[in-house]
């Protein structure tokens, strides 16, 4: 089995990739996907911690997994809202390029 450190490295890698995607890409769809990536990186970290500390943590054996389920639910809701916003933006501007969405500049 993988050690906790290895799993955390994986999680950090995924999180960094996600962050890069959110910051650097122009396509909103890709940004949303990167966001999911960041969330899942966090999930991995939580599950790993959950397993490593299962016997000592106050949350008991399944604490980490329950947290992850929670995050998944939130992520699903976020994806639903994000995608519907995306649809509206597309209908309004016929574009999903983030750089063009700067009508609120000062």
């Amino acid at each position: 089995m993988f050690s906790l450190a290895t799993l955390l490295y994986l999680s950090a890698l995924l999180f960094s990739i996600g962050t890069y995607g959110v910051l650097a890409r122009r396509n909103i769809l890709v940004v949303l996907m990167s966001l999911e990536l960041m969330l899942n990186a966090v999930n991995i970290a939580i599950v790993s911690f959950g397993r490593a500390h299962a016997l000592t943590a106050f949350s008991g054996e399944h604490g980490g997994q329950i947290f992850t389920l929670m995050v998944l639910a939130v992520a699903a809701a976020e994806a639903a809202i994000g995608l519907s916003l995306l649809l509206v933006i597309w209908r309004r501007w016929k574009s999903i390029d983030l750089r063009q969405l700067c009508q609120l500049n000062g």
């Binding site: 959110v22 910051l23 650097a24 983030l98 750089r99 700067c102 609120l104 500049n105 000062g106």
Partner: peptide
């Protein structure tokens, strides 16, 4: 200070 409000979302995120 209003120039800070670029409206460029990746900028905010950064």
């Amino acid at each position: 200070f209003r120039k800070m409000q670029t409206g460029f979302i990746p900028g905010y995120l950064l």
